[in-house]
Structure formats: structure tokens, C-alpha cells
């Protein structure tokens, strides 16, 4: 029981669960593709959770950051033939740098300025993706290859395994972060700005830190995307995707490490499930509608998110069981 409570072990178990599609035989490749979508969104979602769940800031431009890293990594590995690791570093440094500059302007002001600045900046980036076709391939997009790490060229399953490992490591890092003085300061400034300032938290600095972290995670997610799907075009990186990232964090569980993973599974799993169903599967816009309604229900009635549902059920069973015991005595 104590072992299961160990968070690192829990994250490893999540990783193993995600690896099942490649470990088991006879799983259709479409399942791996679906799972990969969950994993890359979960990585970006982890970052959004640091930004939104822990430090209470809204960004509507992280999809564009993902896109930027995806294009960069595709360009650097394919056109300039840089080694994968080096190109990842550059591809992730770009959104970090832009995030720091944009954040330095917007974060000093009231909270909502960040949302607006990122929304506007995201649109500019998307315009760039379309216009700069020597770099992005314009509307038809750019292609990429499976990466080569330490002389080994990954297969589709190999790339997927790499993504799952990255997710597990990032979950551990976020866990460490939020359970440290940094995480405490972030939660404090979200909950009470005055208390945080009076206790010596430099609110500007911590808002910027969380924005930078989320930008890096978005960059990593973009890199995963482009080297798994081996193609990137401008239709993916819309404000709609940024919105989805926020929704999945809220639905999964804001200010929890696993929330983004639960949210990503729901977000990608739900439309797939509904596609299988008769009649319902035909209706356009239904998944979007359901996700929106789910988000509102969670925000109003169950702000802790879906990740707490199992624990809630266990607790209520325990309570009943406990009461029954007391009754017997």
C-alpha cells in the first residue's frame, strides 16, 4: 500500500500503462497513434498546469509555441541535418526566449493581459507559419523524420516509447517542483497575491518562471509531435488547441501532476469512443460541445477535476464502511 502511494512509482506505472500498446502484440497501429496524441498533449498540458493550475495564469498562445518548436525541429534535423538532441535544444530554446520576452511585457500587468498578449502573438506566429514557406512549407506543411538518438534511428514504436519516457520524467520533475519552495510560492501567489508579496515572493518573477516552464514544455510537445507524425502544417496550431490544453487541465485536475494526463486521455479518447457509436458519431461538433459542458461542470461542481473521482469514490465507500463498523460496535 505504501509503495503505491509513492508518487514516482505511480508515474512509472502511468508510463507502463502507456507503453502497453507497443508491448502487447497485435495492437493496431492506429491505437499507437491515438496514444501518441495523448502523450504529446499531456506533455504540453503538464506545462499549462504549472502556468494555470499552480500559478493561476491563462495563456491562449501555447499552441503556437508548440508549432514553432515543431517547425524548428523539422527544419533543423532535415534541412540543416543537425543531430536530434542539438536541434531539440534549439527548438525548445526558441519558445523559451519568446516566452520570456512576451512574459516580461505582459506579466507585469493585470492577469488577463497575458491571455490577450498570447492570443495576439499566437495569431502572428500562425501567420508566419503560413507565409514563410521556405521554412514551413506554407499551407502544405513541412515533413520530418523519425529521430536518430545515439546512432540509433527510432521506429514509430521507438519514437512513441521515447515520448512516454519523456512524459514520465517530466511528471517527476513537475512533482519535485510543485512540492518545493518554488511550487509553494506559485500556489501562494495564485491564492493570495497580498500574502505572497508580504512573505517575500517576487510575484513578477514567479509568474515569469511559470510562463517560461510552460513554454519549454509546449516546445517539447511540439518536437514530439513533429517527429512522431513526421509532418507539420499550420492548421494544427490554432487558438483552439491552446483552448483544448486549458480544458484538459481543468477537466483532468488543475494543480495536480496527473491531471494533465487524465485530461489528455479524456480529450483524445472521448471523440474516438464517440466515433465508434452509431448515430452520435455522425453529429459534427458534439465532442467539442461535450468537452465544453464537462469543463463547466468540473469548474462549478468539482473543481478538483476527474483525477479525484476514484479517490472520492474510495473515500465515500470507506466512510460508509467505517460508519457501518461503528454502528456494529
Amino acid at each position: 500500500m505504501r509503495l503505491i502511494r509513492n508518487k514516482y512509482l505511480q508515474y512509472l506505472l502511468v508510463g507502463v500503462a502507456f507503453l502497453l500498446p507497443v508491448l502487447l502484440r497485435g495492437v493496431p497501429t492506429a491505437t499507437v497513434t491515438l496514444a501518441a496524441s495523448m502523450v504529446y498533449t499531456a506533455i504540453a498540458g503538464l506545462g499549462i498546469n504549472v502556468l494555470l493550475g499552480y500559478s493561476g495564469q491563462i495563456s491562449l498562445g501555447h499552441a503556437a509555441f508548440m508549432g514553432l518548436s515543431a517547425y524548428l525541429s523539422a527544419y533543423l534535423t532535415k534541412q540543416l541535418e543537425l543531430p536530434f538532441i542539438l536541434s531539440v535544444l534549439i527548438a525548445v530554446a526558441a519558445p523559451l526566449l519568446i516566452g520570456l520576452i512576451l512574459g516580461a511585457i505582459a506579466v507585469r500587468l493585470e492577469g488577463f493581459y497575458l491571455a490577450i498578449a498570447t492570443l495576439g502573438f499566437g495569431e502572428i506566429l500562425r501567420q508566419l507559419f503560413i507565409e514563410m514557406d521556405w521554412f514551413t512549407g506554407g499551407f502544405s506543411g513541412a515533413s520530418a523524420t523519425y529521430p536518430t538518438i545515439f546512432g540509433q534511428t527510432l521506429t514509430k514504436n521507438g519514437m512513441y516509447t521515447f515520448m512516454v519516457c519523456l512524459l514520465v520524467v517530466l511528471m517527476m520533475l513537475v512533482h519535485n517542483l510543485v512540492h518545493s519552495s518554488t511550487g509553494r510560492a506559485m500556489i501562494a501567489m495564485k491564492s493570495s497575491r497580498s500574502a505572497a508579496m508580504a512573505m517575500g515572493v517576487n510575484v513578477f518573477q514567479y509568474k515569469l518562471i511559470s510562463f517560461a516552464i510552460s513554454s519549454v514544455f509546449a516546445g517539447l510537445a511540439g518536437v514530439c509531435y513533429v517527429h512522431f507524425f513526421r509532418h507539420v502544417d499550420p492548421t494544427v496550431w490554432t487558438a483552439g488547441l491552446s483552448l483544448n490544453l486549458i480544458a484538459l487541465v481543468v477537466i483532468g485536475g488543475a494543480a495536480t501532476v496527473g491531471g494533465a494526463v487524465v485530461g489528455a486521455v479524456v480529450m483524445h479518447g472521448l471523440p474516438e469512443l464517440m466515433k465508434e457509436m452509431p448515430i452520435i458519431g455522425e453529429i459534427p461538433g458534439l465532442p467539442l460541445l461535450i468537452v465544453g459542458i464537462l469543463m463547466i461542470i468540473i469548474l462549478i461542481f468539482y473543481p478538483r477535476g476527474l483525477i479525484f473521482v476514484p479517490r472520492g469514490i474510495i473515500d465515500s465507500i470507506k466512510k460508509r464502511f467505517g460508519n457501518a463498523k461503528k454502528g456494529e460496535v
Partner: peptide, 8 residues
């Protein structure tokens, strides 16, 4: 969330 609902 309302964006998603009405876009759906």
C-alpha cells in the same frame, strides 16, 4: 468553455 460549447 462557452467558446467550445457554442462552437460545437
Amino acid at each position: 468553455a462557452l467558446i467550445m460549447i457554442f462552437q460545437g
